[in-house]
Amino acid sequence: MTHADHAIVVEDLRKEYGTTPALDGLRLTVPRATVQGVLGPNGAGKTTLVRVLATLLRPGGGRAEVAGLDVVRDADAVRARIGLLGQHAAVDEELSGRQNLELFGRLYHLGGRRAASRAGELLERFGLADTGRKPVTAYSGGMRRRLDLAASLIMEPEVLFLDEPTTGLDPRGRTEVWEAVRGLVGGGTTVLLTTQYLEEADQLADAVAVVDHGRVVAEGTPDQLKAGLGADRVDVVVRDPARLAEAAAAVGGAAGAGTADTAGTGTAADPGGVTVDRDRRLVSAPVRDRMAALTATVRALDAAGIRAEDIALRRPTLDEVFLHLTGDATRNARTTDTTGMPEPTTEGAAV
């Protein structure tokens, strides 16, 4: 596949805040009409990457192309071909949905008639036609986010950047946005999606790049990343939390996983062995032979007199891949990047 087949090409991209790199030689290629997920803990460089690709930041080194155009040399032309949905709503809540979209159209110099026509098209496309004249204050969270998404599509962009588009939405609102994104890709739009909802990447992304410390540390389809973590797992919910350590030893032995990891509090994570989640009374272990391990686990628990509320076989999750690759789960709670400065946010619905 040549560069001409890709909507986004990033080569050795660098950007520093102070003396600490936010992007440190990052490489990424995204085929046209696909969804590329970008995962990473806070401060990993996700938003900085989006801002560089959207021409809001100049890179410190390397190069990037969007829609076949250099983001530095051809910045104006890039802006005419992209849309951007940031982390924060950009619509005016006092205006109606239609008024918001017509306003964005006029800002793009579409003219009154074309702006009105385009607003009507987008309201219909995103299932907002019946609410187009209501003020945005009357919209649900999912409806507002769909309106944000519609605003980012005023100019029918070739490439759309979605920076954590469903943060704060309830499950219904997230599903509404997901359906809208699938429809866009079906129409030929390329989407780059940053998210910390692992389920979102699993649902939407054709490929996922895991970013940490400004570099891509792993990439592939969600299934490839899960397969790379290793075997399937057996999960056991133990009735008596006081017997978790015994259960971990029994499950680990039956599954052939070795010594159990039974940390004192919270979740003990060791993707190569047994994990214990005390809050959920859950013991999990990798298995080599699914059915043999399940039978052996039931027998081992019965022999030890340990009662289980549930036993299930499953594949590794993207959450486990994420924690394994980034190495430090506590980083997800951070609100600043590695320089101690807040990582820039992407405000505004459209570039």
Score class of each variant (00 low, 15 high):
270 D>C: 12
309 E>I: 04
97 G>Y: 06
259 T>E: 15
303 A>Q: 14
81 R>H: 13
69 L>Q: 10
200 E>H: 10
284 S>E: 05
180 A>M: 06
266 G>W: 07
277 D>E: 14
31 P>Y: 06
129 A>W: 09
111 G>A: 12
54 A>L: 11
168 G>Q: 09
216 V>R: 03
81 R>Y: 05
1 M>A: 11
226 K>F: 08
239 R>W: 04
260 A>T: 13
139 Y>F: 15
199 E>D: 15
18 G>Y: 04
87 Q>S: 02
341 M>N: 01
49 L>W: 06
235 D>R: 10
258 G>D: 07
37 G>R: 04
31 P>E: 07
343 E>T: 07
149 L>A: 01
58 R>H: 08
289 D>G: 01
45 G>I: 02
136 V>S: 12
38 V>D: 04
255 A>Q: 04
230 G>T: 05
342 P>M: 02
50 V>A: 12
171 P>R: 10
139 Y>T: 14
3 H>M: 03
223 D>R: 14
87 Q>L: 07
215 R>Q: 09
206 D>F: 02
57 L>N: 01
218 A>E: 12
195 T>E: 09
145 R>C: 00
44 A>R: 03
20 T>D: 02
321 V>S: 11
77 A>Y: 08
85 L>N: 02
158 E>L: 03
200 E>I: 10
99 Q>C: 01
321 V>L: 05
284 S>R: 15
131 T>P: 00
245 A>M: 08
182 R>M: 10
259 T>D: 14
6 H>W: 03
270 D>V: 15
298 V>Y: 01
76 D>A: 14
62 G>V: 09
